[in-house]
């Protein structure tokens, strides 16, 4: 893993997003909901979704975790809000990782994919 890439992980914009993430909080009447855990570090993310007409009408996430898991959750929820559920279901891990625009060390990939896992489970 090149040194610069890891450094990149904690760049200003990422840390700013960590301090004030999008879509953080709770929904009143979610139609879909799931909590995923990362047993390695104790991270926990709950995703709440309202699906209307086959689209993600609204989505919020809550819980606690490291910069990587929280920031990815913020980016992911922004990305899929308004999207077709069928398209979201087709998304792959790499699509989510590419949102971060940083290379991750192997141990952090699980952190980054935690919210994605919760979304997929919620939509099952």
């Amino acid at each position: 893993m090149p040194h610069e890439a890891v450094d990149d992980m904690y760049r200003e914009e990422i840390l700013e997003l960590y301090k004030s993430p999008s879509n953080f909080g709770e929904l009143k009447n979610p139609s879909h909901k799931h909590t995923s855990y990362n047993s390695i570090c104790g991270d926990e993310i709950t995703v709440q979704i309202i699906v209307k007409g086959g689209k993600i009408d609204d989505i919020k996430f809550g819980g606690s975790g490291c910069v990587i898991s929280m920031v990815t959750a913020s980016l992911l929820t922004d990305k899929i809000k308004g999207a077709n559920v069928s398209d979201v279901k087709k998304m792959k891990g790499e699509d989510v990782l590419s949102l971060l625009k940083s290379k991750l060390t192997p141990s952090r990939i699980k952190c980054a994919l935690l919210s994605f896992e919760a979304v997929k489970e919620a939509l099952k």
Partner: peptide, 21 residues
């Protein structure tokens, strides 16, 4: 600050510590 973030940022300085449970 999450321990994993600290460990990862310390790693940038070539400092190896353990983070987690």
């Amino acid at each position: 600050i999450h321990p994993h973030d600290i460990a990862e940022m310390l790693n940038e300085k070539k400092i190896a510590i353990r983070a987690g449970h």
